[in-house]
């Protein structure tokens, strides 16, 4: 009897948490999606419910055809993919090295990589800009990519190291005895076993790069490299803010990360927490 009641109580409180969270976390997104289909006049009525004739695809049409949003969107994609790819290469290899090899000053290296996260980025960007400038990489995709790499590398390396540490060394050892060299071991042992973690690291890099504002705003100078995030920022600083268009651009910018997220969400937790869960 009391057990049933207790279970019911637990269920009720759990669902209360669920409902409150849905309102708090999901409703704002639903609202902005909703508003992206309304006309400026409809939004300015300050009413929640609009007449049917106030719904429109115009916002999306304008964003996609009048502004250069598609170019910027494609730039975002190009940059985020490159960042994921490069950061994966660097961090898989680096994390493997840190996880499996005894390296002089290993702790100092880890500490060094992390200390850069403790300094305000706004100060790093000036010297960073000067480096990119002297490398002649200003306003190029590779310049932006290299700049963004530093945002993702520390976390990626750390996460993957945690993940690789959980893969038993015995498997490595037996592979080595079978005559596999380092790269072969990395390829045949670590990649398949570490796949979930690697997927998550890639996803993480993509999301960070996709959402980055500071670095792009410093290195990009033209529509060759400007990204979707910059465009939202620009639209929202327009003299006459057309909220419908801002909402549409925001929705379009959110969509890719959400789609990607739906692919990895099951693995996400596993990967993010690999290092931490282990006793």
């Amino acid at each position: 009897m009391s057990k049933v009641r207790r279970k019911l109580g637990v269920a009720i409180s759990a669902y209360t948490v669920v409902i409150v969270s849905m309102i708090f976390f999901i409703l704002p997104m639903v609202w902005i999606i909703y508003c992206s289909f309304r006309t400026q006049a409809s939004i300015f009525t300050g009413k929640v419910i609009s007449h049917l004739n106030e719904f429109t695809l115009e916002n999306y049409e304008t964003i996609l055809s009048v502004t250069d949003y598609p170019t910027y969107f494609f730039n975002s994609f190009k940059i985020a993919l490159s960042v994921s790819l490069l950061s994966l290469i660097c961090s898989i290899v680096g994390a493997y090295g840190l996880s499996r090899f005894r390296i002089k000053g290993k702790n100092a290296i880890i500490m060094g990589i992390f200390s850069t996260q403790m300094f305000p980025q706004v100060l790093l960007i000036i010297p960073m800009y000067l480096i990119v400038f002297s490398l002649q990489m200003l306003d190029s995709v590779i310049g932006v990519v290299l700049g963004q790499l530093i945002l993702v590398l520390p976390f990626s390396i750390w996460m993957l190291k945690g993940y690789f540490d959980n893969i038993p060394v015995a498997i490595d050892d037996s592979a080595r005895i079978d005559g596999c060299n380092v790269l072969q071991r990395l390829y045949y042992v670590i990649l398949p076993l570490g796949a979930p973690g690697i997927m998550v690291a890639g996803f993480f890099s993509f999301v960070v790069s996709w959402g980055d504002y500071l670095i792009v705003s410093i290195i990009s100078q033209s529509q060759r490299t400007a990204t979707a995030t910059l465009v939202i920022q620009r639209l929202s600083s327009a003299l006459l803010i057309r909220w419908g268009q801002v909402a549409a651009a925001a929705v379009l910018t959110i969509v890719p990360t959400i789609i990607l997220f739906s692919f990895v969400q099951k693995r996400l937790v596993e990967g993010l927490t690999a290092g931490a869960v282990k006793e």
């Binding site: 250069d68 000036i126 800009y129 400038f133 200003l138 306003d139 705003s217 410093i218 100078q221 033209s222 529509q223 400007a226 910059l230 920022q233 620009r234 639209l235 929202s236 600083s237 327009a238």
Partner: peptide
């Protein structure tokens, strides 16, 4: 180029100060 710079005078000024030399 039909990229007309950042969306605020302040951002535009900051950006130009830093990178006009490019």
């Amino acid at each position: 180029d039909n990229f007309y710079g950042p969306g605020k005078y302040k951002d535009q000024r900051d950006k130009f100060l830093l990178q006009a030399k490019s």
